[in-house]
Nucleic acid binder design. Structure first.
Lengths: 209, 209
DNA sequence: GCTAATATGTGATTTTTTTCACGGAACAGC
DNA sequence: GCTGTTCCGTGAAAAAAATCACATATTAGC
């Protein structure tokens, strides 16, 4: 029975997809909801409910065929096509992201970096092309980039996001510790806020739960 | 009326705390739930419900006194004391984290870095002391470190987490794209998984919502 | 001092999400 | 081929979270 996917469900299904990848690499052909649940840290029935949103994929009594599950997830989550991405802001974090090797194996192709400092761009040694910020719109459109990793200083986050939106970007992973406003219907945003995660963690530590 | 704080509520309150900081720096003395909501991207009534978990803090008709709100949050969330933290794994990401300046202003004191490569440690130029991995337990206990940012390669994440737990750490921000198992009652974990966020984003982009 | 606009606090309601419980199916060991 | 175990799919129940609606209070303008 197919249903609309909620964000918590999508999040977990993405983790399941990752697991399928790893299981395949290990040569494992079948997997149960219990095993999947253990691997991604949620109960088995949650996994089953999530997977069932895609329709019947498993075999009653004998678990899931890894390849088949992965294929279903790929289609349902839209991982068929490779997404072209860019990194905006090449400070410490942006540079670290540029050197991250896992993007390719995960279905992403990071094809450009941008920074407002021409000096920095000229002295950088990188495998991928880097451009000055004022070329952002042109490069994004020419290279058909759909997705941006935003790692600029917080004060210029909104202005930079505006340029990204104007360039036709469709998704932003926002590493800046501020909320950015974008037209919700056109552009999706995911926020990663390290300091806030640390604060939440700290609170959980004191509240003891 | 004081209530138990749920994790979504804690997350938002941490953002509100951050906002209070910024408002204070800007010299703003009062703020409304509407303004706070806009700044952190949630509706005003959500903010009010969240803040009310701390008891009555605002003034009916005239909003919140920034200083008072901040003081309440500080107490409720346990931000009175500075948390001592360490960074485990000094690859690209770990190094980037080491250079991040905002920890201090946010109530964290990052006092150590660890890496398994003695060679890397010796050649690193850092302001904070870095140690080989085999000294981890001793240093964590000596320095009374409560919190770890875990940025080691995924295959050694669990083993490293085990050492952290054995060292008496109380919270872990896990940057590795795997789920780590820890004794839940003693140690809190927050996961930051960049690839998974990108995948979720990609799914939202295709699902168009 | 009156009015309109703007505030908070909160019980009630609705929606969302998670958890439970169980029917029916496959499998392994003997 | 029988038996005990494991497993999926799913409607129903429960729990959690978000939203609404409104009583009540303050402020600003005039």
């Amino acid at each position: 029975m197919k249903k609309k996917l909620s964000i918590p469900t999508i999040t977990r299904l993405c983790m399941v997809f990752q697991q399928c990848d790893e299981l395949q690499i290990m040569g494992i052909l079948r997997v149960s909801s219990t095993q999947l649940g253990k691997a991604i840290g949620v109960p088995a029935h949650t996994i089953r409910k999530d997977i069932n949103c895609l329709g019947e994929v498993g075999d009653t009594g004998s678990g899931y065929d890894v390849a088949r599950l992965k294929a279903h997830l790929r289609r349902a989550l839209g991982f068929d096509q490779i997404r072209r991405a860019c990194i905006v802001g090449l400070g410490r974090l942006g540079s670290a992201l540029m050197d991250y090797e896992k993007f390719g194996a995960s279905g992403f192709s990071v094809v450009a970096g941008f920074d407002s400092s021409v000096n920095r761009i000229e002295t950088m040694q990188t495998r991928m092309p880097v451009y000055p910020a004022y070329d952002m719109k042109e490069v994004i459109q020419r290279e058909a980039i759909e997705l941006a990793l935003l790692a600029v200083p917080a004060p210029v986050a909104q202005a930079t996001a505006d340029v990204l939106v104007a360039s036709g970007i469709r998704g932003i992973v926002n590493f800046c510790p501020v909320v950015i406003n974008v037209p919700e219907t056109q552009v999706q945003v995911r926020n990663i806020n390290v300091i806030n995660e640390m604060r939440v963690l700290s609170s959980l530590m004191t509240l003891g739960e």
